[in-house]
Computed example of a mutant assay.
Amino acid sequence: MIDYNYVLRNHILTHNQIGNASDKSNTQRCDVCGTFLSSAYALKAHLQLHSDNSKPYTCTLCDRRYSSVHSLRMHEQLHTGEKPFKCEICGKDFSLRATYKTHMFLHSGERPHKCVLCGKRFKLSSSLKMHIRTHTGEKPHNCDTCGKGFSTLGNLRRHQRIHTGEKPYKCTECGREFNQSNSLKAHMHIHTGENLPKYDISVIIYSLS
């Protein structure tokens, strides 16, 4: 009997080789974006991301492309404002069925997406995908300034504020600005007098300096 979880676990672990040019096993390189892949099969699948033929249906309003008419029609609802999917619990409306289903998890508490490596469960498939990177070590988002890699786009954007000096979080009490929301939260305890929660010590020191 085939242990499909074992097969999937081993498949997931192959992703930690993708994008690592120093790994000699990565002999297949995408000529379009330069990504290194572990096999000819993986390269063929990857090239579909660059192929217009794989997404022949184009939105006339924003030029975004889709692989099926159904996907295109669902996307067009974002432009028309149509929201045919209604939550019967709270009354909120949604334009996409997938978004509606994701919303329903908030009411049910269901976490249908399970990591086969550690068993942790998630409400969103995107959350599971990002979590898997903690096992594989994959960091597909690179800083253009210093080259440091990050597992999520959000972490990359927070890091880039170090280079740009951007401080989007402002204290409403004293006007001081911060580059991270956690720094602002820690700083606010100076004004409220509340006990500090267990923030990262570096964040606390930065906010009090």
Rank of each mutant, 00 (worst) to 15 (best):
M1Y: 08
M1R: 14
M1A: 05
I2S: 02
N10T: 00
N10M: 07
H11N: 06
H15N: 12
H15F: 08
G19W: 06
N20L: 15
A21P: 03
D23N: 15
N26I: 15
Q28Y: 13
R29Q: 15
C30P: 04
D31Q: 04
T35R: 11
T35H: 00
T35C: 02
T35S: 04
S39M: 03
S39W: 11
S39T: 14
L43P: 03
L43T: 09
A45R: 10
H46V: 09
L47V: 02
D52C: 04
S54C: 12
K55D: 13
T60I: 03
T60V: 08
T60D: 15
D63G: 06
R65S: 14
R65H: 01
Y66T: 07
S67T: 11
S67Q: 10
S67I: 08
V69M: 09
V69C: 03
H70Q: 11
S71N: 11
S71T: 05
S71P: 00
L72T: 05
H75Y: 08
Q77E: 04
H79D: 03
H79S: 13
H79Y: 03
E82R: 13
F85T: 00
C87S: 09
C87P: 12
E88C: 02
C90V: 02
C90G: 11
C90P: 11
G91C: 10
G91K: 15
K92F: 13
F94H: 11
S95E: 01
A98Y: 05
T102I: 04
H103K: 02
H103E: 08
H103V: 10
H103C: 13
M104S: 01
L106G: 02
S108K: 09
E110L: 07
P112D: 10
K114R: 15
L117N: 02
C118A: 06
K120I: 03
F122A: 06
F122T: 07
F122W: 01
F122M: 09
K123Y: 01
K123D: 03
L124G: 00
S125C: 04
S125E: 02
L128E: 04
T134D: 00
H135E: 08
T136E: 04
E138S: 15
E138A: 15
K139I: 03
H141V: 01
H141N: 12
N142V: 06
D144R: 02
T145C: 04
T145N: 11
G147S: 11
G147W: 01
G147E: 06
G147V: 09
G147M: 10
L153H: 10
G154V: 13
R157Y: 15
R158E: 08
H159L: 14
Q160F: 07
R161I: 05
I162E: 05
H163Y: 13
E166G: 04
P168R: 07
C171L: 09
C171A: 13
C174Q: 07
C174Y: 07
C174K: 14
C174F: 05
G175F: 14
F178D: 09
S181T: 09
S183R: 11
L184D: 13
L184W: 15
K185C: 06
A186N: 05
A186K: 13
I190Q: 10
H191S: 11
H191R: 14
P197D: 12
K198E: 06
K198G: 02
Y199K: 04
D200S: 05
I201C: 01
S202R: 14
V203F: 00
S209D: 02
S209C: 08
S209A: 07
S209M: 09
